[in-house]
Amino acid sequence: MNSFSYLSRSVAMEKIKIKNTLVPWLALFAPLFVVTVAFVAAYADGDRFYGPDINPWDNFSGHILVGWALFVFPIYVSLQSALYSAMEHQNRAFAYLYSLPVPKWSIYAGKLLILTGLISLSHIALYGFSEMAGWLLGILKPRYGFQSYSMHEVLSKASLLMFLAGGGMIVIQLYISMEFASFIVPAGLGLFAAMAGAISRGFAISKASPYLWPIGFLNNSLQMADWQYSYLWIGLAVYVSGALASIVLISRKDIV
């Protein structure tokens, strides 16, 4: 049996497992939360920020992207991975899974691909919800001027590239959530990592945290020329090397 067969069957198993759970809904709720907060703030208080000859998308997109990258993305990944692995821990399913005739690496890889797929979905949703919210503001508050400008390229590229910069965080959170049966450990780690990021942001040491690479990538700018593309490569490199390290550790782990 070849590796692709194992992997495709593991992915199909994981797809069944997340049916009827909150896991896929969280991928939509997290970006919806950020965009809703930005929408409500803009709707209620937009006159302070938006005026004639000012592109309102600059301010609006900035709030969404920074709020997402700095706070919601790390917390969302932590909750998503914790919720996802809790299905196995609560049902004591890891012993069962590892007694099935599939390699341990494919079980891990199936989970990683599904989690990565869900997180990519959340970034597509972040872009889609942002566009919809801006369009709605253009209808509800025409004086803000949303209908006269657009920021499709910046919003879509930032959403996609922040996702890639978050690769290190994704692989770390998945491993921790599979390793620790308690929901608190992976969820708490993400929460504290997000808070530590907010506190230490700007200090050189913060560049070492995978939880800050998405915001590090944005570099406080919506100008694509200012973005720090090195964070993408670091994020992808840690994603791949972290996945390989996780497979080695999981393969050696005793299920007692």
Partner: peptide, 17 residues
């Protein structure tokens, strides 16, 4: 394992399915 079927302690089932 291809030739073994196992039930370990409490049957491992996903109750939401």
């Amino acid at each position: 394992l291809r030739r073994v079927g196992a039930l370990i302690e409490i049957p491992t089932l996903y109750p939401h399915l």
